[in-house]
């Protein structure tokens, strides 16, 4: 029986790692890479089959990125594409029996959220310089408190939203199976809903990351 919330850990170089999360992450990465490589192995001018799907996804995410970030955000397209593809595969992986989503671990979601936020501030300072730092103190210097709270809230909300959705989904799958053996219909319905949730959460995480990045990268109209 799956023990909810208990994680198998390994020690390596004095550090503790959640073994299941790491393995599931590597499986997700492998699936994403496999799909990407298989779909783009033999690129054709006139696309067919799998190329259509992967190409469509990449074109769609690229357009989203360019719309949000402007032409200067071109170099962030691979990041956004990877973020979405990884998250959707990771979210759906937990729906496969015996598998678990890497995103049901706060370490994964907070890791990604912090990665994005660190990137936002680094890029902000790098691309806008003092102007970026100054905007935390506007319209009055006292606003820096609210702004800092907001900046701290960003990765936390980003991380917990995804973590909570996916963990809750997986817990409910287990609970529904434990409740009654005959409850196939609710289980199936919940699986379908989890599929939807996985896609939506991946999209929300990607969109919010884009919005935060836009703050730092996009030229302001001033």
């Amino acid at each position: 029986m799956h023990e909810i919330g208990v994680r198998e850990t390994v020690q390596f170089a004095g550090l503790t790692f959640n073994w299941e999360t790491l393995v599931m992450t590597w499986i997700s990465m492998a699936i994403v890479l496999l799909i990407a490589i298989l779909a783009t192995r033999n690129l054709k001018m006139v696309p067919t089959g799998a190329q259509n799907i992967v190409e469509g996804l990449i074109v769609w995410l690229r357009e989203q990125t360019l719309t949000s970030l402007g032409p200067k955000g071109e170099f962030l397209c691979p990041l956004i594409v990877t973020l979405f593809l990884f998250l959707i595969v990771a979210n759906w992986l937990g729906l496969v029996p015996t598998m678990a989503s890497p995103t049901n671990d706060l370490n994964t979601t907070l890791g990604l959220a912090l990665f994005i936020i660190v990137m936002v501030h680094t890029l902000g300072v790098y691309m806008k310089g003092m102007h970026y730092i100054k905007h935390f103190f506007q319209p009055f210097p006292i606003f820096v408190i609210i702004n800092v709270i907001e900046e701290i809230a960003k990765p936390i909300t980003l991380a917990f939203r995804l973590f909570g959705n996916i963990l809750a989904g997986e817990i409910l799958i287990i609970i529904l199976l434990m409740l009654a053996k005959w409850a196939i219909l609710p289980s199936v319905a919940w699986l379908a809903f989890s599929l939807f949730i996985g896609g939506v959460q991946a999209f929300i995480f990607t969109s919010l990351s884009l919005a935060y990045l836009a703050n730092a990268v996009k030229d302001s109209e001033e």
Binding site: F17, T21, L22, L33, P78, L83, F86, N107, G111, L112
Partner: peptide
């Protein structure tokens, strides 16, 4: 929260590079 967080960041970075 443990060292998995750092590992996941690195994992993601590797995936970004490979997918790119």
């Amino acid at each position: 929260i443990n060292a998995t967080l750092i590992a996941q960041m690195l994992n993601f970075l590797v995936l970004v590079v490979l997918l790119r």
